[in-house]
């Protein structure tokens, strides 16, 4: 498979993955573009791999985890979670989602990545460990801490705002 064929076949999926991973369409575009330009330079070697797609995803994950906010970019909440039109209570669901998105964006990036790989990509802990270059137990630790943070933080916020 040539690089051009790979890009044609896999670019939409890689962009969706990067967008879900970063929560920012602009950052996703930058990350995917940067990674694929770099992948082009080493395509001879990449194309010989059993799963170049998996390797490129690992490059995207690494790029996201290590992405320095070079241009002062932050993960904007407003680009995530459009409300489904058939939801009965738009305002409530929207607020909830925004809250969840806000919490998610503030997790350490490795924890965000684990959640995306587990709940969006449906990957096993072993697969996630391979992508991140760590042990499955480490993945489980990241996931547990991330889920705990999403839930307890929210509860703490609610409790703090409650009237006696």
């Amino acid at each position: 498979m040539t690089f051009e064929e790979f890009v044609r076949a896999r670019l939409p999926a890689l962009l969706r993955f990067a967008t879900v991973l970063t929560g920012d369409r602009g950052l996703a575009e930058d990350v995917v573009q940067e990674v694929l330009v770099r992948a082009h330079g080493r395509w001879r070697r990449l194309s010989g791999m059993a799963a170049p797609d998996l390797y490129v995803r690992r490059m995207i994950v690494n790029e996201f985890i290590s992405w320095r906010r070079r241009w002062g970019r932050v993960v904007p909440v407003e680009t995530v979670a459009p409300v489904r039109p058939d939801t009965p209570d738009h305002a409530w669901v929207h607020a909830e989602r925004q809250e969840l998105a806000w919490r998610l964006a503030r997790l350490p990036r490795r924890q965000q990545t684990v959640l995306v790989l587990r709940y969006y990509e449906d990957r096993t802990d072993a697969e996630i460990a391979e992508l991140l270059g760590c042990r499955p137990a480490t993945v489980r630790g990241y996931a547990a801490r991330a889920l705990a943070a999403l839930r307890t933080d929210r509860r703490s916020t609610v409790l703090a705002g409650e009237k006696p």
């Binding site: 575009e29 573009q33 694929l36 979670a81």
Partner: peptide, 30 residues
């Protein structure tokens, strides 16, 4: 109230919708 794992799945899947057009990125890669 606590979020569920399904809430998280829904949020992540919803993010897909804002992905940029591949053609635009393809041009940037070229």
């Amino acid at each position: 109230m606590r979020f569920t794992e399904q809430d998280l799945r829904d949020l992540l899947v919803a993010r897909e919708q804002v992905a940029v057009e591949p053609d635009r990125v393809h041009a940037g890669i070229r």
